[in-house]
Nucleic acid binder design. Structure first.
Lengths: 225, 225
DNA sequence: AAACTATTCAAGGATACAATTGAATAGTGT
DNA sequence: ACACTATTCAATTGTATCCTTGAATAGTTT
C-alpha cells in the first residue's frame, strides 16, 4: 500500500494542476475567450483587460496544465484550446457554477430575465427560419471570432460596427443576435441598441460553444493554413 | 460595458471559487472518497492520511464552494457531495487529466496494464453472469462504502478481511473484484492476493461512480434515516 | 456534574501565487 | 545593419494558502 499509495498521491497532484489552472478569474476569462477560437496574446490581453506580460504568464500556466497550445506564426503567437475536451470541461465547470453557486445564478438572472433574452424561439427551428429568410441572425462578436467559427447563415455584425448597419436592415424583419454565450454582454447591448432604433430584435443566449455542444453545425470562413 | 464588465469580472471570480476548491491534491482525494458515499470527518482524514483538523479545514473549503454538505448527527458530522453534478464534474476533471496530462496517463497505465486488469469481460454482460452465479463479484472497499452504494449482487469483502474469506470461496469459480475506480489500488491488491492463493480472479477497473455514470443500477443497503 | 469525544476555530510560520516592472529574445520591415 | 514589434523572461512585492499546534465548542456517556 505504501508503494501504490505514493502513486495515488502523485495522481491527485497531477489532477490538482488542472484545478490550479482554473483557480484564477483571469485564466478563466482567457479560457472562455479561447473557447470562441484561436487568438494572439495581445488580442487576448486587450479583451480581458490584462497587461500583455500578465496575460502571457497566465497563458504559460494554462499551457503548463496542457489546456492550451501556442503556435508561433512570424511575430505573433496564436493560442488555441489544446483539445475539444478542454471546452467540454469548461462547460461542465460553468454548469456546476450555475447549479451550485447562488451568486452565479443571480448574476446570470440579470442577463436572462432582461427583456432582450430570447425565450420563445426554439433553437432547432431557428436555423430553418433563418434559411427561409424569415429571421436575420447576426453574430455580434469581433470579426476575428466570427471567422474562427459561426452559426451557418449568420451575418457578421461586430457590435462596434452595428451603427453602420442600421441603414441596411429593414425594421420589420425580426433580428436575432448572439455572441459568446450566456455570460457575454455583447448581444445584450446589441439588442438594446437595435430596439432603441425601432428594430424587432431578440437575443439568443447560446454562443458557439453551446451550439457546438448540441451537435449543431458550425461554419468556418477562415482559410486553413 | 463598464457596468456589465464588472458583472463579468465577478462571474469569473465566482467560477474561480470552484477552481480553487479543486486546486489542492488533498481536497481532490477527499472529493474522490466522497464520490463513494457519505463519510465522517475522522474517517475521511484517516483514509486520506490527513490530520483531523486539516481535513476539517479542507472540507470547510469544499463546503464554501458548495461542493459538499455536512450534517451533524450527534457527535459526528457526516459529509456528502452536495449534488450529483459534483460527481459528474469530478469525472470530467479526471477524464481531462487522463486525456491531456501524460503523467496521469502513465500512472494509470501501471494499473491498467497490470495482469490483474479485466479486459475481456463486457461490463454489460457481467451483471447477467453474476446473476446466474457463473461469476462471483466482490466489492473490496471498506464495508462503510459498500453500504452507501454497490453493484447489485456484489458481495462485500473488504480488502482487510479478504484472508478470512479464502475458505468460503471455490477455487474454480471466477472472481471479479472492483473498488473505487480506475485510480484505486484496493482491487489490484485483492486480485494479487487471490491469484497467489490459486483463485481465478480478475479486476474490473470501473468503480461505483463509473457504474452509475453508465446508467447501470446501484444497490444500497444502508437504512435511510 | 465530570470525563470524554468529534469537530471546529484561531494563530503562527513557511510556501506558493499574482501582478508589476524592466530587460531579453526572436522575428519583421526598411 | 537598423529601428520596430510581439512575446517571453527575471526579479520584486504584496497577498493568499497550507499545515501545524493548542484551545474552544457541542454533544455523549457515566
Amino acid at each position: 500500500m505504501s508503494a501504490t499509495g505514493d502513486l495515488k498521491k502523485t495522481l491527485y497532484e497531477q489532477l490538482a494542476r488542472l484545478g490550479k489552472a482554473v483557480a484564477s478569474p483571469a485564466r478563466l476569462e482567457l479560457l472562455d475567450l479561447l473557447c470562441q477560437g484561436p487568438r494572439t496574446v495581445e488580442s487576448l490581453a486587450h479583451e480581458a483587460g490584462l497587461s500583455v506580460a500578465n496575460a502571457s504568464q497566465h497563458l504559460r500556466v494554462l499551457h503548463g496544465a496542457r489546456l492550451v497550445e501556442g503556435e508561433k506564426n512570424g511575430l505573433f503567437v496564436t493560442y488555441r484550446l489544446a483539445d475539444p475536451a478542454v471546452g467540454d470541461f469548461f462547460q461542465t465547470l460553468r454548469a456546476l457554477g450555475e447549479k451550485r453557486l447562488a451568486e452565479v445564478d443571480a448574476i446570470l438572472r440579470e442577463f436572462r430575465e432582461a427583456p432582450e433574452s430570447l425565450e420563445a424561439i426554439e433553437k432547432e427551428t431557428l436555423l430553418n427560419r433563418v434559411k427561409k429568410g424569415e429571421v436575420i441572425l447576426i453574430d455580434v462578436r469581433p470579426a476575428e471570432e466570427y471567422r474562427a467559427g459561426h452559426i451557418p447563415f449568420a451575418m457578421s455584425v461586430p457590435l462596434k460596427e452595428l451603427g453602420s448597419h442600421f441603414a441596411k436592415l429593414r425594421r420589420r424583419q425580426p433580428i436575432v443576435a448572439y455572441c459568446r454565450g450566456p455570460y457575454c454582454v455583447l448581444a445584450v447591448e446589441a439588442v438594446k441598441q437595435l430596439r432603441a432604433k425601432g428594430f424587432r430584435a431578440a437575443r439568443m443566449d447560446d454562443g458557439i460553444a453551446e451550439w457546438r455542444a448540441r451537435g449543431l453545425p458550425v461554419a468556418v470562413s477562415e482559410v486553413a493554413k
